[in-house]
Design a protein around this nucleic acid. Structure first.
Lengths: 337, 337
DNA sequence: ACCTCGATAGTTAACGATAACAATTTGACG
DNA sequence: CGTCAAATTGTTATCGTTAACTATCGAGGT
C-alpha cells in the first residue's frame, strides 16, 4: 500500500506500454494535432493504467515556465483579504494554475521584498500582491523583474496594473445615504494611515460632504479593529452633535456600536452608522448594520484575468480596474430627531 | 529594465565567473564540506554579482523532491481556518518551504480528492488537510499515496496523524464555567452535523452536565453562522428556563445575543452565554463575550512539525496531538437571578 | 624518496519532460 | 502504379541541477 514500485512511472513507461515513443505521449498530453485517435486512446489507457502523472519539474525545466502563481498577502486573517485569497485561488485553479501564498507580518518594504523574492525563487509565472499600503507599493516599484505583477487594493494612481474596489465611490454612497436620511453632517472613523483604503474612503467621504455644502468634521483615525472602534466610539459618544457616523469598516463599526450603547446613545434613534465590507455577521450586530459591500470575488477574478492577459502578451499598457461596491441597507440608519 | 539578457544566469555562468566548475558552485550552495573558504567566497561573490537564483525545477527533477507543501482547506474565509492557514504558511516559510493552497467549496469526497490530486500533480513534499468533516476524512483514507499527510481538526480517532484543538476540553471549561456561576443547567447551540468540532463540543458539554448530575437539555443544531445563531436564538429566547447557553462558536453567539436582545432578555442578567474561538471582535459584542480561545498558531506549528518529522523519517507511528484551549472571561456570564 | 590518505576540485551521467528535426506512412491523383 | 504532400510517428538534443566518480595536490609516515 505504501511504496508500490521503486520509481514513479515516467513518460517512457507509458510509451512502452502503449507501444509508442515518449514524444507521442507528450503530444497526447498536450493535445497536439496529428495524433491518430486510436493511438491517443491507447496512450490514455496506458496513462490511467500506470497512474502516470506528468512531472512538472521536468516540464518547467525545459519550457522555462511554471504553472504557479504567487500571492503575497498581509493579514490574510481579515475577512476581506481572506475572501479575496480564497476566490483568487479558486479562479486560478480553474485556469490550471496552482497558487503559492506568502504572508507578510508587516507591510513594510523589507518584508514585501522578501516575500516577492521568495516567489521569484520559486519561478512563479506571475505575482498578485494584496498591497493596500504605501510602503508596499514603493517596494514593488523598486523591484525590477520580468515576472508580471498585479496588485489588489493597490494605489489607484500607481504604475503597477491592478484591480481594486472603488473606495471613493463606496464612501460616497455611505455618506450620501446618511445625508439623505437628513443628518446635518457625517463623522468619519477612518482606517490607519498609509492604507490606500483609508485614504480613498476619507477622500470619498470628504468630497461628498463638500459637494453637499456641509460642515466637514475632523477625521477620527483608527486601525481596522473593533478595539480601535470602541476607543474612538467612546470619544464620539460624548459629542452631542454627532448623529451620523461612517466607519471605515464593519469591525470598527462594531466597536463604535458598543461604545455608543454603553454611553446610552441609541442606534439608530440617536446616532446612525454605516460600515464597510459587509462581513457575514454584520446583519446580526445590534442593530443590524447598514454597510457597503465590495465584491471580493469579482476583484479576485479580475486580478486573475489581468495577470493571465499579461502572461500571454507581455508589455501591455498599464491597466487599472476599479470595481463599484454597493450599499446594503439594514437598520443602523434613521433620520435624526 | 525589463529584459536584461536572453537567459537567466545558470550555475555554469556563476562557475565561469568564479573560475570554478559548476559542481563547486553547487557545493557552495548546499553547504557541502571540503570547499576552501576562499573558493566559497569567490563563488558567493559571483552569485550576487549575477543575481543568480537556483532553478528549483532542475533541482526537483534530479533530487526527486520539492520544497513545496500543499494545504487543502475549506472555507478559509472563516476566522479559525484563515488563522491556521496564515500561521502555517509562516512556519513553513521559516522552515524553507513554500506552500500551495487549494480550497474546496464543499468538503465532500470528490472535492477533497480532487484538490489532493492537484497537489499530488504538483509533487508536493507533504500535505496538510484542514478537514473538520467526516466525508473528508473518508476521502483521505481512501487515498493511497506515499506523500505524508497530516490533518488539522481531523477526527481524533482516525488513523491519519494530525493535530487538533481539544474540542471536548474546550466545551468542558465553557460548560463548567456556566455551571460554576450557579446555573441549573446549560443549553447548547451546536455546529453543523458531520463536523468533528461540533461532535467534540457536544460530547464535552454533555459529559460535563452528566458529571454534574444535571438535566441534559436537547441540543439546538445550527451551522457556524451568525444567521443560524439568530434563528436558534429566537427559539431559545422563548424558553423561560434557559438561563445559560454554550454556543459552538462566537458568530453563533453573536446571532443569539441579538435574538435575546430583541426579545428583551438581557445578557448576562437574564441569560449567560459562552462562545468558542475568541474572534478578535468578541470583546466588543454587546456585552463582551466570554469565550474559549484555541491556540490556532500552536495548532499550525504543531502540524508543520509533525509533517516535517514524517518527511525526514518515513513510516513513523501515527501521532495525534490535541491542544488545550483556554477560557477568556469577559462579561457575558453572571449568576442566575 | 615513495606511498597513502584526506582535502579539494573537476567530469560525466542522470532526472523527465519538450522542441526541432528526421523518418515513415498514408492517401489523393494523374 | 508511381509521385508528392500531408499526416503521423520517431530520434536526438536540451533545460539546470545533483550524485557518483575521478583526478589532483599536499602533508605525513615509513
Amino acid at each position: 500500500m505504501t511504496s508500490e514500485s521503486l520509481r514513479e512511472p515516467a513518460m517512457v513507461d507509458v510509451a512502452r506500454l502503449a507501444g509508442v515513443s515518449h514524444q507521442t505521449v507528450s503530444r497526447v498530453l498536450n493535445n497536439h494535432p496529428n495524433v491518430r485517435p486510436d493511438t491517443a486512446r491507447r496512450v490514455r489507457a496506458a496513462i490511467t493504467e500506470l497512474g502516470y502523472r506528468p512531472n512538472r519539474a521536468a516540464r518547467a525545466l525545459v519550457t522555462g515556465r511554471t504553472q504557479l502563481l504567487g500571492v503575497v498577502g498581509l493579514n490574510t486573517t481579515l475577512y476581506g483579504p481572506a475572501s479575496m485569497l480564497a476566490a483568487f485561488e479558486q479562479a486560478a485553479a480553474a485556469a490550471g494554475f496552482a497558487v503559492s501564498v506568502g504572508n507578510v507580518a508587516d507591510l513594510d518594504r523589507e518584508s514585501v521584498t522578501a516575500v516577492v523574492e521568495r516567489h521569484l525563487d520559486e519561478r512563479v509565472a506571475g505575482i498578485v500582491v494584496i498591497a493596500p499600503v504605501v510602503s508596499a507599493a514603493e517596494a514593488l516599484e523598486a523591484l525590477s523583474t520580468d515576472v508580471p505583477m498585479v496588485t489588489i487594493d493597490g494605489d489607484p494612481r500607481r504604475v503597477l496594473p491592478g484591480v481594486t474596489v472603488d473606495q471613493g465611490m463606496g464612501a460616497r454612497i455611505a455618506t450620501q445615504h446618511l445625508l439623505d436620511a437628513g443628518h446635518p453632517t457625517v463623522w468619519h472613523v477612518s482606517g490607519p494611515e498609509g492604507w490606500f483604503d483609508s485614504a480613498g474612503r476619507i477622500a470619498g467621504w470628504e468630497a461628498t460632504l463638500r459637494d453637499a455644502g456641509v460642515e466637514i468634521p475632523p477625521v477620527f483615525p483608527a486601525d481596522w479593529s473593533a478595539a480601535a472602534g470602541y476607543r474612538t466610539g467612546t470619544m464620539l459618544a460624548r459629542i452631542p452633535e454627532v448623529t451620523a457616523i461612517f466607519a471605515a469598516n464593519d469591525h470598527l463599526a462594531l466597536g463604535i456600536l458598543r461604545a455608543l450603547y454603553e454611553r446610552g446613545r441609541r442606534v439608530p434613534e440617536d446616532v446612525s452608522i454605516v460600515g464597510f465590507d459587509d462581513v457575514p455577521e454584520a446583519g446580526y450586530f445590534i442593530p443590524p448594520l447598514t454597510t457597503v459591500r465590495p465584491d471580493f470575488r469579482a476583484v479576485a477574478d479580475q486580478a486573475l484575468q489581468l495577470l493571465l492577459s499579461r502572461l500571454s502578451a507581455q508589455l501591455q499598457p498599464v491597466e487599472r480596474v476599479e470595481l463599484a461596491p454597493r450599499l446594503v441597507v439594514r437598520r443602523s440608519v434613521a433620520a435624526p430627531r
